[in-house]
């Protein structure tokens, strides 16, 4: 845990900047509400205030700056507001025994997690199989690799609605399958690239050694190439799972989705509830953090067991 201190320092810095930004970001809204409530505000009227810089408004109405930190619909919520909203939609609901109600982020997170894991499974499988094909076949190397690279230049946001419409057209019920496909689409690439590198990592003398034993291709794969690629695989899996989560959330954004963290973000935007957006965003970040951490632990245990030097 020797990197705990630097991590916490950066976190504190981010929270500090965030906190400081809340005042100016919410100043105009706070003044509008205060004026409606009958308080004296300089200058009067929100139209007139548009001409004045936020800094001057803050200087001239210093009494009302604090109100910006306690708005119902803030432009930028404070960390504590986001924290409270997160708690309200997760822990508090668990305590009331409604962990999987429609307003609970645990429910939405679970839906997103399922698609992410399916997409991750599909994406890594495709990535590994593709890498094996590329390493063992010159034809695949020359034909597959360029397309794999091109596939990543297509913006996923443009592709996601098409995948949803197409899978709907093919008679696939619900969002689960298209979401997993979109997520796999983002996830397979890092796995493919890393696995190609990993499977090619054995040195020529390591390969020559197997040749002197007259080793067949199947045994060469399982005794040398595959174990040699494991460290590369884990690095790829950590990038891949994060990409899979992003893919799933993008898959939940197109209109019509009602469940999943992506849908919460979209709905929060449409109904003007920034707190819902922010808490869904943080739920997604926490989910990604947990997934990457879990993979990191599996990586450490596996590599240690395999004898790789820590």
């Amino acid at each position: 845990m020797r990197n705990l201190l630097p991590v916490l320092t950066v976190l504190a810095l981010i929270l500090g900047i965030w906190w400081a930004a809340v005042g100016p970001m919410n100043m105009r809204a706070a003044l509008d509400i205060a004026e409606r409530g009958g308080a004296a505000v300089v200058p009067e009227g929100s139209v007139a205030r548009r001409e004045v810089s936020v800094w001057r408004l803050m200087a001239q109405n210093s009494d009302h700056v604090a109100a910006g930190y306690d708005l119902d619909r803030p432009r930028l919520p404070t960390p504590t507001q986001v924290g409270a909203e997160l708690w309200k939609t997760t822990g508090a609901m668990v305590l009331r025994g409604r962990a999987f109600s429609k307003r609970s982020l645990i429910n939405h997170g679970w839906i997103t997690l399922q698609s992410t894991l399916w997409g991750f499974l599909l994406g890594t499988t495709l990535g590994i199989l593709g890498a094996v094909a590329i390493v063992y076949s010159r034809v695949a190397d020359m034909s597959l690799m360029p397309w794999a690279i091109i596939s990543q230049t297509v913006p996923i946001v443009a592709l996601a609605p098409m995948i949803i419409v197409l899978s709907n057209q093919l008679g696939i019920e619900g969002r689960g399958v298209p979401k997993a496909i979109i997520s796999a689409y983002l996830c397979y690439f890092p796995v493919l690239v890393s696995m190609v590198k990993g499977l090619r990592s054995p040195t020529s003398s390591e390969l020559d050694l197997l040749k002197t034993y007259n080793t067949g291709p199947v045994q060469s794969f399982f005794k040398l190439r595959l174990p040699a690629s494991v460290p590369f695989l884990f690095t790829a899996l950590k990038v891949g799972i994060a990409a899979a989560l992003v893919g799933t959330i993008v898959g939940e954004l197109p209109t019509g989705a009602i469940s999943g963290l992506g849908a919460r973000i979209l709905i929060g935007d449409q109904f003007g509830t920034p707190l819902a957006i922010w808490s869904a965003l943080f739920a997604a970040a926490i989910l990604a953090g947990l997934l990457v951490t879990a993979l990191d632990l599996i990586q450490r245990v596996t590599l240690k067991r395999m004898g790789f030097r820590a």
């Binding site: 003398s205 002197t212 007259n214």
Partner: peptide, 20 residues
């Protein structure tokens, strides 16, 4: 080689790190 007539020792030990 097909009858595994020789053992070869390379300049680098070339032990597989994941094997004891």
């Amino acid at each position: 080689r097909l009858t595994r007539a020789y053992g070869y020792v390379f300049q680098a030990a070339g032990l597989y790190p994941w094997r004891t």
